[in-house]
């Protein structure tokens, strides 16, 4: 991504969502997806995706952390001494993650219990630091917000897709609503769809993720060099 590090040429009154800026959001969704192309952030993608609800909370948390971290670093980009920039990025991310954790603990305690360690692991999520280092340090705040939002969204939709299949196949439900039971009910007593225990274990996430990457690369023709 050479376009990312290059300074955007300053134009007069560029539209809020110009073509160049739309690319910040659309690029990471498919063509340069942090999970399926860059294969970053796999750890949390495997760990939190057994159910859709915690996955959604995780996705929102990552979006918040990435947007805010990109904004903060971009605002400070001319003040941050380059020799300590990594530790500064880390401090900003860690503070934001701690904020998210505290808010979850206060207002969604069940989620906090379920996610706690993985919310903490956002700190080590390579996507976040990767974007700070590659983009926010060299670009203006508004562009950085868009870039962070795009990358986080690319992460979010993949983990939500994985979680959808894992919850459906593993627990027979979607967002906690029992789908398998309802289907079984249509066929009368004695008929029941079996859930797949493999999907509940992390192995299931590997399989689903692998399939998603396979389908995507077949379509886009992306080859690793």
């Amino acid at each position: 991504m050479s376009t990312e590090t290059a300074q955007a040429s300053v134009k007069q009154a560029e539209p809020l969502l110009s073509k160049r800026r739309r690319k910040f959001i659309s690029d990471p969704l498919v063509d340069n997806n942090p999970i399926t192309i860059q294969v970053l952030g796999i750890c949390s993608a495997l760990a939190v995706t057994t159910q859709l609800q915690p996955t959604l909370v995780m996705a929102i948390s990552v979006i918040f952390v990435m947007v805010m971290a990109n904004l903060t670093i971009s605002l400070l980009r001319n003040a941050i001494p380059s020799r300590v920039r990594i530790i500064v990025q880390l401090a900003v991310i860690a503070s934001l993650v701690t904020l998210v954790n505290e808010v979850l603990k206060a207002f969604a305690f069940d989620m906090y219990k379920e996610l706690s360690v993985f919310v903490g692991l956002i700190i080590t999520n390579c996507i976040v630091m990767g974007r700070l280092e590659a983009f926010a340090l060299g670009n203006k705040p508004y562009d950085s917000i868009l870039d962070g939002f795009g990358s986080a969204l690319g992460y979010a939709w993949i983990i939500l897709a994985v979680a959808f299949f894992r919850e459906l196949l593993g627990s027979g439900s979607v967002f906690g609503v029992q789908i398998y039971d309802a289907i079984s009910g249509l066929f009368g007593e004695g008929f029941s769809l079996a859930t797949n225990g493999l999907m509940v274990s992390p192995v299931g996430a590997f399989i689903i993720l692998g399939l998603i990457i396979w389908v995507q690369r077949t379509k886009t023709g992306y080859v690793e060099h």
Partner: peptide, 10 residues
């Protein structure tokens, strides 16, 4: 700020 709310949640 959040301490008392967290205590209630616990």
């Amino acid at each position: 700020v959040l301490g008392p709310i967290q205590k209630k949640a616990v």
